[in-house]
Design a protein around this nucleic acid. Sequence first.
DNA 1: CTCCTCGTCGATACGGTGTATCGCACGATA
DNA 2: TATCGTGCGATACACCGTATCGACGAGGAG
Lengths: 204, 204
Amino acid sequence: MAAAIALADDGGLDAVSLRKVGAALSAGPMRLYGFVDSKDELLDLMADAVQGEIGVPAGEWRVALTALAEATRAAVLRHEWFADLMGGRPRLGPNRLAVLEGSLAAVLPAFPAVDDARHVLWTVHAYVAGAVRAEVGERRAARRTGVDKPAWQAAHGAYLRRTLATGRFPMIERFVAEGTDGDPAAVFAAGLAAVLDGLAAQRR
Amino acid sequence: MAAAIALADDGGLDAVSLRKVGAALSAGPMRLYGFVDSKDELLDLMADAVQGEIGVPAGEWRVALTALAEATRAAVLRHEWFADLMGGRPRLGPNRLAVLEGSLAAVLPAFPAVDDARHVLWTVHAYVAGAVRAEVGERRAARRTGVDKPAWQAAHGAYLRRTLATGRFPMIERFVAEGTDGDPAAVFAAGLAAVLDGLAAQRR
DNA sequence: CTCCTCGTCGATACGGTGTATCGCACGATA
DNA sequence: TATCGTGCGATACACCGTATCGACGAGGAG
């Protein structure tokens, strides 16, 4: 599993193949089937290992959920492939259960109704999963074409300039002209704050 | 592209292969490379086609964004694979640009600062992408094991019951005991309302 | 000590994938 | 009518996940 994570860390999920993992352990591909029933199960194990890195949150509900979200984002920056796995399907590994348990314990005092607490967790999780995935997507796109803005414009600029030149997208024109690329961490935190504000307001 | 979408609608993204798409058009796999440079580009076209189904929102910012979110969710229910593509990487197809343009036009009156408007759109998009992906994930898991709760418990119950029996997860035990599975549409709408509430509150 | 059994491991194989290469055949032009 | 250019399909390659099967070695029975 450590070998698989190392492979995924540089090269993405596509670089994780049973052959390569086996080779990293100087073994054949089929050797892995003694420990795992399928590749999906290996991915489940990898995902739960990252959940273990995240740690279980505690404390007042807002600080606990903020800590959980920031830790999740940090883990995703270490293991970008985790963003692809997060939302995919429910993975109830032991570490995931521990995170859930801690989150529930932190939220229940403020939201005593079980369904309300679930609503809070679900909403925050949806935001975090979507946000980190979008951030990783942009990061990958930027890495593919070159980090700096001129290189990006040189790559996709032809299509975009032509499209914007039609004048059908005045607002988007304003955005590429006036918009400033904010610090990703601040953008993430601001969105998270909005979500938590809304949840706090719903609490009557 | 229509053939690829039909293939993906029943069978998921894995069912979309250049060979199968070609066969549906009674052509070889390589024939597609006359219209598309790679499979990723075909996926981009599929994603933008679904964006076209969603339509561009308009009106007061809250109603516009609510309509956009609901339309997105409806499109995802029609094409579950779209949830896998949404967050992946920035796709700036024409329909996507139109949706962006409309959303910006709707948000800018209430949030005149360009960066504030971007923040609003980004946050809502993150929530919607994460929420629909999670919902699709649960839906797929439920379909795999059987829709009803007893079948699900029979499938994963052994592991979960054993794990919960350790007593280390009292909160989760409370949840499986007391929690009620809410209507997915209502759950989605409630989370969206929380996000919009938070954004409205941040607007000073 | 010998033999047999059983569990473990690796090699091979199969059907599938995306895509690079190449030669053919056909239609348009001189 | 001859020639050229070009769209098109067949073939090929490297790789994937995994099912099957044979060999090998250790441990127990006689």
